[in-house]
Amino acid sequence: MDPKQEAIKELLIKMADDQLIIGHRHSEWIGLGPILEEDIALASIAQDKVGQSYTLFQLLHDQFGTADPDTMGFLRAENEYRCCHLVEYPNGEYDFSLIRHFLFDHAEYHRFDMLQASAFEPIRGIARKFKSEIKYHILHADVWVRRLGTGTEESHQRMQAALETAFPLALGIFEPSPYEQVLIEENIFPGEDALRQRWLETIQPILEEASLQMPDPSSIEPAYGGRRGYHTEHLAPLLEEMSWTLRYDPEAERW
């Protein structure tokens, strides 16, 4: 496959994996949220994410002849996944889940905004649709980050601590792909660096309004590795659980 095709495929797989794994994590909140309305909101967001992942795997299947979405999403070996470490971490408490959702969705929003103008034509419409969904995810995250950042002393401290934990992981979203240069030169995607810049410019003022101190990105080692198939210890058990039923009877054609 020529490098351009390989570059697009790589980009689609990492996006599909991110969406699936974060969606899976959000869905674990259903029944356990701090208020009922949050169970419902996170279930909604989870459905959007998993639905977006499905769309991307379908596109990969149609354009690049990869396996069907269920096989790609549920049954690959762990080191074939290209998600970033941020999405792999267990939910922990609501502070970590919320700040992860905030950091991740702002990056997503810009990513799909950029992809609306991609030279890879099939992603444009998809990106537009995803962006219109992620717009609401961002509204949700922003409202809560502001509320809890400025709520009580306790909520403020928790949010600040969660931000510090999640921030290096979030920088891992922007781990450069081996095809970064091809993507940029072919006008497929402006690149992870450009995305990271837009992301930082967006989140900083919101964090300020929330009285939260953004760590200095230049002093932090980003959590890289996910985009090359090196994952945290949290991904393997997640995948084992996710594929449990499908693996129970590999002969089954339909579930």
Binding site: I30, G31, D39, I40, Q47, F57, T245
Partner: peptide, 29 residues
């Protein structure tokens, strides 16, 4: 929502996972 919710993370494939999430979400609603 709890007994069914435990199967969201183990649902076989995209379509079932999405449908079960929507269903359990409805129950909480």
């Amino acid at each position: 929502a709890l007994p069914e919710g435990t199967w969201i993370t183990r649902a076989p494939g995209f379509k079932r996972k999405l449908a079960l999430m929507a269903k359990v979400q409805d129950e909480v609603g």
